[in-house]
Structures are given as C-alpha cells and as structure tokens.
Design a protein around this nucleic acid. Structure first.
Length: 770
DNA sequence: TCGGTCTGTCATGCT
DNA sequence: AAAGCATGACAGACC
C-alpha cells in the first residue's frame, strides 16, 4: 500500500511537472487541501474512514490540526491535543485531525430490564446498528431523548457487550453469544474497545451531537448521501468507517474512504448516571453512538485489532514494565494454551490469531490477545488449549472481520497496576486500533511471507540475518561455483547459447558450421577423402569444435572439465588455432601410445571418427562434412554425380543422419545446460526477492512496534490528565478509557463484576473534563 | 579399479 | 513420405 502510494505520488508529481512544463498551472495545494479526497488520499495516504482501521485518523491529523471548522472550539477541551498529534505522527500518512471524545459512563444496575442480554444489543457505541433493533426500544428513548435515563447507560452497556462480544447483526457465532452471559467483564471490555474505536475513528464531537446523531440514525442508512453539510463530513466519515454497505470505497485499495475528517479534538465528556451529560455538549450515551452499520465496524475493528495483536505479539523486545498482561500474553502466545479470552470474545477468533502466532515465532501472542479481550470467562478458566495451529488463511481474516465491534484500549494503554483492579480487563493488552491500519495490510502479507519463510525453514532469526545480509546485497549466493553467472551473464550465456544453437543450425543448413564451415577446407577434405588422403590428424578434437569454445569458458560449471569442447570446429580452423592439436591434448597418452604401436598412416584413423573410417573404408568420394552439412538438394546432386553402390549410399546416409543427430544432440545438451543455468539464476533471483521482502517485513514490524509503544505512552498520559467534575484524577484501577467506533472516547468504570450489574448502567456518570 | 563426465549414437516423436 | 530436429536412453571413452 505504501509503495503504491509512493508510486502514485511520484507519478503525480511527475505529471504535475510535465503539466507545468507545458504551461499548465497546477496548484497542488489546492488539490491537497481542498476537496479532492481521492487525490489527497492517494498522496497523503488513506484517511481513517478509507482504511478499515482508523489508526490513520489519529496520526493523519497531525498536520491537519484545526482543519475541521467544527472542531476548532473543541481544542480547548483537550489539552492532550498535543498527544494526539503525537499519535498522528506515528504514521507517515497525514489526514485532518481527529476529534477524541471521552465519555464517562456508569452503569445503572437498577434499570436493568432486559432479560436476554445476549440477543438484545440495545444500542451501540459505534455506528449503532442496535439503534434500530426492536429489542432496543427501551433504550431508544434514552438515547434520543438525551435524558440520560439509566436505560440509556444500561443499553449502552448492553450494546457494548453485544458489540464487543459478538457481531450485532448476527454474524457472530452462537458460541460467542453464549459466552456473553457474563456481561460485567464484557461490558468493561467493550467500553474500552469503544473508547479505542473513538480514538481510532477520530470522531468529531459533533458526531455526538444528539440532533445530528438522531438525524443520522434516521437518515444515514437509507439516505447516507442526503446529510447536511454539517453532518456530511461525519456521514462520509462514518460511511468510510463502515467496512461494507454504502460506504465509500477506495477504488484502488477497496478501503473505506472518508472524504473529510472531523478535526481531531479530544472532547472528554462524562455522562452522568441519570444519563444527562454534565457538560452542555454531553449527551446520552446512546445518542452518541453512530447508528450506522455496526457490523461493518465490527469487522473492521476485528481486522484492526487482529493486526495489532499480531504486531504486539511479534514485538518480543517490548519491555513495558506495566504491561504485565501483555507480556504474559505475549509470552504465552507462542504456546497455544492461552486461548482463554477474558472479554467474551467469540471463540472462533482465537484460532485465527493462533494461526498467526503459531506459524510465526515472531508473532507469538496475537492469538491469545483477542480471546482475552473479548472473552473474560475464558481467561483463566478451562479453555482447551488449541493444539492445532491452523494456518492463517483468508477465511480466518474473514472470520476476524465478522466479529469485532469495539476494542479495548485499557489493556494496551493502562499500566498493569491500573488494570489490576479488574484482572479480566487488565490481562488483555489490546493494541490500539490506530495501529491496525498499518498492520492490517502489511501484517497479513508479512504473515504470509513469514509463513512462507517458515515453511522453507526460515526462522525469524534467519530472516533477520537475511536482512542483514541483504543490506550488503551480497548475502545471497547460490552455488559458489556458479558465481560468474550473474543474471546478466546468465542471460548473455543463454542468449549466446541460443544464438550459437540457432547459428549452428543455420550454418548447418548452409554448410558453414559443424564439420565444414570453410568451403576451402571442405573442398580439400573432400578431395582428400575422395582420394583417400584422409588426414589422420583430424581427431575427435576437430569434430567437437562446432561451437565457440569461449562460450564454455563463461560457464563455471565447465571450468573443472578437462574435456575438449571444440566441437565440430572446421578442420582447417582447428589446425589453424591449434596446429599441434592432432597429437596433443585430450587423448595424448593414448594416441602417443598408439602412435608408437601404429604406423603413421593409421594415426589418421585413430583420430578420425568411426564414420570417417567407414567412409574411408567404403571409398566414399567426398568428405563426411560434406555429407552431413550439405543441403538436401546439393547432397542429392552430389550423390547423383557419383555412381555409388548401395552400401556406399547407405553409409553416406547413415553418416549424414548420425552427423546431424550428433549436432542435434550437442545443441540439445547445450540448451539443457542453458536451461539449468537460467533456472539457477531464477532461483537466485527469487531468493533475493524473498530476502528483500523479509527485510521489508521486519522493517514494518519494527516501525509498528515503535508506534504501539508510543500509543501506550500516550494513553497513559491522556488518562492521567483526565479529571472528574471535582478535579480529581480518575484512578486507573477503577476507570479505563474506551474508544468507540464513532470516535468518542469514554471513561468507563472497571468494577462491574456481575452480569446483572453489567446490564444495569452505572448510575454515576460524571463529566469528564480535561 | 571405480565412479563421474563427456560424447556419440540410436530410437522415437514431432514438425 | 522424406528430411530434419529434439530428446531420452544407452554405451563407450576419458579422466
């Protein structure tokens, strides 16, 4: 993705330069700053809405502070704007600022009405498909009315649990619902997740405006395009957030594309237990939830969290003293035993994560993180350790996408001591959604690559080693013996071989290559052959030189071969090049020995081929070279000119057949050798590419790890700066920040223990003030 | 002497 | 149908 962007950006720049050269003025700033979302997206990177994970929203807003006009007045609310900017700076992709709304939500246990907590997600903190749920009728008044009745908070919790644990629209697996009976932990987790989503999505505070929300809830789905200007951006953003449905999708990447982003302003708002927001802007939690298509958000969140988890799992070196849970999870990640999730996460998600972690030593804890986040019951209880390590597959990713509603940031951001109050929550270090953008695309590829590497016996250490080796670009080498055959050389040899082959073939037809390339020599030999003056010195050496011997010198494999490869060289040329050859080289010992035993005239026979000897014996009136290399017509004419016996004709035809077949065999072997060389080169290239990809993967992992650490620190910093109405800091052990899909940030209490309490919204909802 | 390699040759199939 | 080419298989020569 990044490469694509880079490529696109460069191309656009070049195109712009071209336009400027031809006199066309191109105002890049206009394109970038004004309303050309696609171009801006291409250049600056996908906005949060475009990407399923809204991480970019935070990071992209770093240079877009105050872009959103509506968010200007909200800057004062959050002094942690700077922090957000830092968060935004985690990514190189920049989009307008993100607005972070923090809500303090208290469950009101008294108003718990719903009997079936699992199946009735009343409202949703994220885009709120639950708003339209018939079961949510009780919750709806609270949300719309903004009265802040207990139902609203309760419904929120319900929605949270339902969303977080299972996909609200029924995509979730039955098991996931079953595991949601204990809403207490789930609610907390969901709240955290919601908060995280808010951060990720960078929802503007106007998103939480009740009127807007109500309007959106009524209009957004059926008429997403009809939103007013004030809500238009939010609508776009939400649409972008939604993975599916009517959301705008990047044509290239298929990612959701927000046209505009709300300015990033962290707006901490705490909803009182009565459901009335203490601040003027405070609204019932229910209304805060964007009603649009929670399922999509769930999937998106799933992907994001999974990617983050994988990354977190991979960061072995992470040494955050407070992230005990995370470390535990990571440590246990390699072992599949820690499948138990604390937060009622659908169990099916676990295998997916495990797939990743199991196949990659570098991604140990990914799988466990999810379950712990979503399935509190499963945390310490008896979840049968998944011994099987299903491979990461597209199906897994789809599963992941299908069930994630909200994410819990507490585990990630809060130090362990903070989380210690609720072990279930604390034990689940959740990676911040903002990371998921990066992770989502890169991690899957990386995982696949890593799997591939692992399958080939690559360990991560080896991969790292590889990457080190690749730095010098000299680490890879196939066979040392084949070093000379560089890609180019290989090609050269190949081409030369091909050319030689073709040339030989052509020359064969022309009679220029092979046994007689020189007409004069052929003539002489013919005369000699006809006369019977066979030259004993013409040995096998001469016959073997039909190809340029230099070609073989380029082949390292042939270096050690002492054979004479001067195939089919013309006799004259052979003599010219090696006047001493007839009695030297190759078979010298044998020939010397033979020379001592044989008379000089037999020496020719010794150095001639069998066919030559046969031809001489049969008194063939022309040379074998002529027999072999003459074209068919000339050959027939030659035969016709001489009155030859049947035996002579048969021998001549056999000589021609064998001679041609010999050249064919030589060519065939040459081609075979070239093929092998090319294959070797191809393997070498592939290995080089593989190493490069592994190196890139490591770099991505490294950068993501850094961003995650930064996010953790930012979370802690933000949390520590939060104050209640009375100016007291929220104890981390009792509260946690949750980030909803719509961009709102909520401060949620941790201490709900029973499902009953979970169903009941907190009575105390305090305004959170920065 | 043995094993590996190279080379030539044959058989076969295809063009 | 003949000629040529490509290639696997085999054997001999060579190292």
């Amino acid at each position: 993705m990044l490469y694509l962007k880079k490529y696109f950006t460069e191309g656009l720049i070049q195109f712009t330069i071209l336009l400027s050269l031809i006199g066309v003025r191109v105002d890049v700033d206009t394109y970038l700053n004004n309303q050309l979302p696609p171009l801006r997206e291409i250049i600056l990177g996908p906005s949060s809405a475009y990407t399923q994970t809204q991480f970019h929203n935070l990071r992209n807003t770093l240079d877009g502070n105050g872009i959103h006009p509506k968010s200007v007045d909200l800057d004062q609310f959050f002094t942690t704007r700077r922090l957000l900017n830092q968060v935004r700076q985690l990514d190189r992709i920049f989009v307008p600022s993100t607005e972070l709304n923090t809500w303090l939500v208290h469950r009101d246990s008294e108003t718990v009405v719903s009997t079936s907590s699992q199946s009735s997600p009343s409202i949703t903190l994220d885009n709120g498909g639950g708003l339209e749920d018939a079961n949510n009728l009780d919750a709806t008044p609270a949300m719309r009315g903004g009265s802040g009745t207990p139902e609203s908070t309760y419904n929120l919790n319900e929605a949270d649990s339902s969303l977080g644990a299972v996909a609200p629209e029924g995509n979730q697996e039955p098991s996931s619902r079953d595991g949601n009976d204990d809403l207490t932990k789930e609610d907390i987790d969901l709240i955290d997740i919601l908060w995280r989503q808010d951060i990720d999505l960078g929802a503007g505070r106007e998103v939480f405006n009740y009127s807007n929300r109500q309007k959106e809830s009524e209009e957004q789905k059926p008429h997403p395009q009809e939103n007013k200007d004030g809500n238009e951006e939010q609508e776009r953003w939400r649409n972008g957030v939604n993975l599916q449905g009517a959301q705008p999708v990047d044509g290239e990447t298929g990612e959701s594309i927000p046209e505009q982003f709300p300015a990033s302003v962290v707006t901490p708002e705490i909803v009182s237990n009565e459901g009335v927001a203490s601040t003027s802007q405070s609204l019932p939690l229910a209304p805060q939830l964007p009603p649009a298509e929670p399922q999509l958000d769930l999937e998106q969140q799933w992907q994001d969290i999974m990617a983050i988890m994988e990354l977190q799992a991979m960061e072995v070196n992470i040494t955050s003293p407070h992230s005990n849970s995370s470390s535990d999870i990571e440590s246990s990640g390699s072992t599949e035993s820690t499948t138990g999730g604390n937060f009622g996460l659908p169990t099916h998600s676990t295998p997916v994560n495990q797939d990743v972690s199991l196949h990659q030593a570098s991604l140990p804890s990914c799988s466990q993180d999810f379950p712990q986040i979503f399935n509190p019951q499963l945390n310490s209880t008896s979840n049968p350790p998944r011994t099987t390590m299903p491979r990461l597959a597209s199906s897994n990713s789809s599963n992941i996408n299908s069930t994630f509603g909200v994410t819990n940031l507490t585990g990630i951001f809060l130090p362990p001591h903070i989380n210690s109050s609720s072990t279930n929550i604390t034990s689940t270090p959740i990676l911040p959604d903002p990371f998921s953008n990066l992770l989502e695309e890169s991690m899957l590829d990386e995982i696949s690559l890593l799997d591939l590497a692992m399958e080939e016996g690559f360990s991560q250490a080896q991969a790292s080693q590889l990457e080190d080796e690749l730095d010098s670009d000299s680490g890879l080498s196939l066979d040392s013996s084949h070093s000379p055959a560089s890609p180019s050389s290989s090609e050269t040899s190949c081409s030369s071989a091909a050319s030689s082959s073709s040339t030989s073939a052509t020359f064969s037809e022309e009679g220029a290559v092979g046994y007689s390339t020189d007409s004069e020599v052929a003539t002489v030999e013919t005369e000699e052959g006809a006369v019977g003056g066979y030259q004993p010195g013409y040995s096998k050496l001469c016959r073997m030189s039909y190809q340029d011997p230099s070609q073989f010198h380029s082949l390292p494999q042939l270096d050690g071969i002492s054979h004479n490869h001067t195939y089919n060289l013309p006799l004259a040329s052979a003599f010219t090049e090696h006047p001493e050859l007839p009695i030297s080289i190759g078979k010298k010992t044998v020939r010397d020995k033979h020379n001592k035993l044989q008379p000089p005239q037999d020496l020719l026979d010794k150095h001639s081929s069998r066919d030559e000897r046969r031809a001489r014996a049969m008194k063939i009136p022309f040379s074998n070279e002529k027999i072999i290399n003459l074209p068919v017509e000339e050959f027939n004419e030659l035969l016709a000119k001489h009155h030859l016996s049947e035996g002579q004709l048969a021998l001549i035809r056999d000589i021609r057949r064998r001679g041609k077949n010999k050249m064919a065999a030589q060519n065939c072997r040459k081609r075979k050798l070239d093929t092998i060389i090319n294959l070797e080169q191809g393997v070498q290239d592939l290995r080089r590419d593989k190493s490069r990809l592994l190196k890139e993967k490591m770099e991505f992992i490294r950068s993501i790890r850094q961003m995650k650490q930064k996010m953790q620190s930012l979370y802690q910093e933000v949390f520590t700066q939060l104050r209640d109405e009375e100016g007291r800091p929220y104890p981390p052990s009792e509260y946690s920040l949750q980030y909803s899909a719509d961009g709102s940030v909520l401060i949620m209490p941790r201490g709900v223990t029973t499902a009953e309490q979970n169903r009941k919204p907190e009575k105390k909802q305090k305004d959170k003030k920065k």
